[in-house]
């Protein structure tokens, strides 16, 4: 069971404040949490901070331990972070990349155990046929799957995935969301995912954290989180929340709500 408590967290990039006074109560164990917000709002910085890779002010505690004070190895053991960039195209084959991720993080594992982890991960993600292909001969989407496999193979308590579906087609997007949710539930861990596709997030996440203007605009279950006002505040668009025949909310965006000429960055 994994507990993440974020209290008065603030993140600066250089000397520019990105996010300030972020406080989030503990999420339910096993939850898949979508992190939404416009470009440049600090979704990536937020995940990097939780991964211990960015400095932060305030406090973020994983199971009672302050994340930026954990030792490298302990942090890697408990936190699995998938960067937004794809893994480098090297002559490593996928199996080696995944196995080395497991061995680098878990020196305690026997060779056979690490291999069993790797094999199960390939099966879980349905990428066994890629196992012995070199990364420099894969498509972007395939490399993204290998990157995700490198996170899953370590069986972390908390997964921080920065746009894990950005290079994937529909079928693989669904597969990734499915596998990640399943793992989070089984281990009673947590998965936080930065996503751009609001409807994908509403449909598959248990909980949504919506960032806007350097703060949390909303943190609520997927069913209730979106309102026209919040869409306007976060993305500066006018939109409606409709419900599909199965009762899942989805967002339809009609137009930009602010006059053009606004910069991309907030």
């Amino acid at each position: 069971m994994t507990e993440l408590i974020i209290d008065d967290l603030s993140i600066a990039y250089g000397n520019k404040q990105v996010l300030t006074h972020i406080s989030l109560p503990a999420f339910a164990p096993g939850a898949l949490i979508g992190v939404l917000g416009p470009n440049g709002v600090g979704k990536s910085s937020f995940l990097r901070a939780l991964a211990g890779l960015n400095k932060y002010g305030g406090s973020a505690k994983l199971n009672g331990a302050e994340i930026n004070r954990m030792a490298h190895q302990t942090r890697a053991r408990h936190i699995g972070y998938l960067p937004q960039s794809l893994p480098q195209g090297t002559s490593l084959v996928a199996y080696e990349a995944v196995l080395s991720a497991c061995r680098a993080v878990r020196p305690d594992l026997a060779h056979n155990a690490a291999q069993a982890f790797a094999e199960a991960t390939f099966e879980q993600l349905g990428i066994t046929s890629l196992a012995f292909q070199a990364l420099n001969q894969m498509s972007g989407g395939q490399r993204q799957m290998v990157g995700l496999a490198q996170v899953i193979v370590r069986a972390p308590d908390i997964m921080l995935l920065d746009e894990p579906t950005s290079a994937l087609d529909l079928r693989w997007q669904l597969r990734v969301l499915d596998v990640v949710r399943r793992i989070a539930r089984q281990q009673r861990g947590l998965a936080l995912m930065a996503l751009h596709d609001i409807n994908l997030a509403l449909r598959h996440c248990d909980h949504i954290v919506l960032f806007g203007n350097g703060a949390v605009l909303a943190s609520d279950c997927a069913q209730n989180v979106m309102t026209p006002q919040r869409l306007r505040d976060a993305y500066q668009v006018d939109g409606r929340i409709e419900y599909c025949s199965r009762g899942t909310p989805f967002v339809i965006v009609d137009r930009l709500s602010s006059p053009p000429g606004q910069t991309l960055e907030n």
């Binding site: 991964a51 890779l53 490298h72 190895q73 302990t74 942090r75 890697a76 053991r77 936190i79 699995g80 972070y81 998938l82 960067p83 960039s85 893994p87 480098q88 090297t90 490593l92 080696e96 990349a97 080395s100 991720a101 061995r103 680098a104 993080v105 020196p107 990157g147 490198q150 996170v151 370590r154």
Partner: peptide, 18 residues
Amino acid sequence: WKMTALRGGEDYARSFGV
């Protein structure tokens, strides 16, 4: 193992605790 992990890129290696 750490060096092999580094081939994936610095961000990846850091996230593996390297």
